[in-house]
Design a protein around this nucleic acid. Sequence first.
DNA 1: TCGTCCCCGTCCTCTCGCACAACAAATTCT
DNA 2: AGAATTTGTTGTGCGAGAGGACGGGGACGA
Lengths: 410, 410
Amino acid sequence: MSPQQRRSGLGTNQEAVRRHNLGTLLRHVHGAGQISRAELTSLMGLNRSTIAGLVAELESLGISERTTPVGGPRQGAGRPSAGVRIAAEGPFVIAVDLGVDRAVVARVGLGGRVLERAQAPVHSDGEAWQVGAAVAALIRRVVEGAPPTAPLVGIGISVPGLVRRSDGLIRLAPNLEWHDVSFGGIVLAALGLDVPVSLANDADLGALAEHIRGAAVGVDDLIYVSGNVGVGAGVITGGVRLEGAGGYAGEVGHLRFNPQGRPCHCGNRGCWETEVGAHAIAEAIHCPPDKVAQLDEVLDGYTKPPPELRATGAALGHGLASIVNTFNPRLIVLGGYFRSLYPLVRAEVNSALADRALPAPLESVTLVLPGLESDSALLGAAEIALEPLFVDPVAALGSALVDVGSRLAV
Amino acid sequence: MSPQQRRSGLGTNQEAVRRHNLGTLLRHVHGAGQISRAELTSLMGLNRSTIAGLVAELESLGISERTTPVGGPRQGAGRPSAGVRIAAEGPFVIAVDLGVDRAVVARVGLGGRVLERAQAPVHSDGEAWQVGAAVAALIRRVVEGAPPTAPLVGIGISVPGLVRRSDGLIRLAPNLEWHDVSFGGIVLAALGLDVPVSLANDADLGALAEHIRGAAVGVDDLIYVSGNVGVGAGVITGGVRLEGAGGYAGEVGHLRFNPQGRPCHCGNRGCWETEVGAHAIAEAIHCPPDKVAQLDEVLDGYTKPPPELRATGAALGHGLASIVNTFNPRLIVLGGYFRSLYPLVRAEVNSALADRALPAPLESVTLVLPGLESDSALLGAAEIALEPLFVDPVAALGSALVDVGSRLAV
DNA sequence: TCGTCCCCGTCCTCTCGCACAACAAATTCT
DNA sequence: AGAATTTGTTGTGCGAGAGGACGGGGACGA
């Protein structure tokens, strides 16, 4: 629900400087988990004394705490630098990964630590309010153990579908058969709370999480291609998420692939999804249709690549070539059931990609599996809920909720 | 040659605040051409006195000058606000639009005013150094009339091909038959000057120019699709250029379109370019191959749409649908010979697009023709050359060259 | 025509944030 | 053990934007 702030042609206020520096410092601590003040000075290019002031403010806000100088491998002489780490009873968020057959909910602290998690199956033909109630129950369970002083900053929800950026409305979630569902509002109503809720597409959040603490740390141009019944992609370019005008960017599953191909649920024929989507793969390996949602487990069952998947691998590579030509990423992360598929058909994918992509963008691209395994979208949901803290820590804490456990216990 | 600066996790220095505010103010003056100080205060959200100080600095740098209160349509009472406009003898850049059959060179001042221009045909089989010499001659001619006190900030070059972002190397320009050409260095050597040179792809620059002062002013998510023998796209998303890891993003001409289609020069079969590229269109309308470079003029000759172009229009629309699904732009600007083609097959393009794009991204997208006609790439080249001024006006002027006319007259 | 109102530019002072320098502390190297 | 090195801490200074007071300039109404 929080519209991403866009830096327009505004001038920089000196109050904004403090906000920005405090937020950036927190972002670094969040990214590293534990970091020395000396590293912070060199990373941020500010003076020692300035960093000291910022760190002191973070501590007085209860966000971070001071640690003894880290005993790690040091280089050279000099006084060891005191560390900064996320406070144990610091702010946290609720992350929700809504899948086609199950929902995972976690309480996540700064630093990306999953403090508690719970999950439950959801019926793919369930109505939105039923799913919302189930998610709310999971949230209650997960919040129970939270320290009473720890503030809840917000809720982030990963959705397998098209989410409107301006207000988080789920425009279309094909595999849940939802149209124009205000799922954030439904969950909040079921909880009886009023906290910031952010929703986004699962592939977008996968990309975000892999960028911050997964396989794409330090890579500013990456694509997370998610096989999750449907096929979608999350794009990060220049270090920022590609969202598009409405927030629907990255729907690569409906790239034109084979005009003589099979009909797609979107109404066209031969979309890429009809060749590398879960249903196509299930059909190729003669997997019963009711197990499509667990396609990753089925694929994990193979010890050696079945020949029926060769064509799928080639189609995957050919589609990725279009993506490489279009986005010129440095890294492509293969998430969802592609995590299980890619190791089986690595050779076919790579050669098909090399065959069809332009040489210039091809030479710098690498295909990898997610560094966060199947938690990418969940941790990405945590990230968008945490985002306000990095924009303005003081304001975000001001609107956060304390003692959520007792509030929900009613 | 100037690597685009990326804002990393740096802290904000208070010196950086001044730089940023001065640059942002200049960006506003540049965008509007003439603007009142009162508008600047509300646009930038800064105090009146702060704006006054920034404007005074800009004037002392010789960049802007004060104008009498604008006599335009005013609203309400109150003292009229003094205007700020670009100084007549202020800094300028050289913009070069390298086409497949001609080069256009212009002297462009801040505010995007084309102060002088010249052009000459280039042979498509010419060697890079020959083209460089021709461009250098045009630059000399264009610089002649510049006031001796006006500083030259840099040179921007639009290239019909893949340009490496890190150093401006032309990796591939298929229609010039260039591979790995350091054209910036060649032009500088021919001129005997040393000024910052920036190169970029023509479609990227078209998007940039249309965003700043063309049909896409105020639109932060747009795509400029350029038909220029080959087909490419420049993407602006969230208000910033999509470049990709190497700078090659946007090569939509080689999206997979029809796997049973014609062979493409890239080595594949059925790329989108083989259906909507200049050669395909020329063949469809029985245009002689030697006039392919002037395809826009040929198309302009039609008073009513020839039926042979219907299929091309549909292919254009179908390809655009993939682009809409992938990028979710608010605006698609059809440049190059698409400027002449689109009016002929508007109905076919629109219906094909509506047929194949997903409803959510489709509902907010609009197709338009360039607001800058055929000067988009040229003015975009000016923009990237001017860019350093908006990052740090003082530093950019410090490294600018004065009295270029006499330096080149040798 | 005059007075009033409204808005803007200018000047001055204030506040706030970061830089800088000096000193103390903690560790490594010789 | 002493020198060298790096960092934390403290106090001072500088610079940039904010804010208020004042004057100027035009629109509007009586």
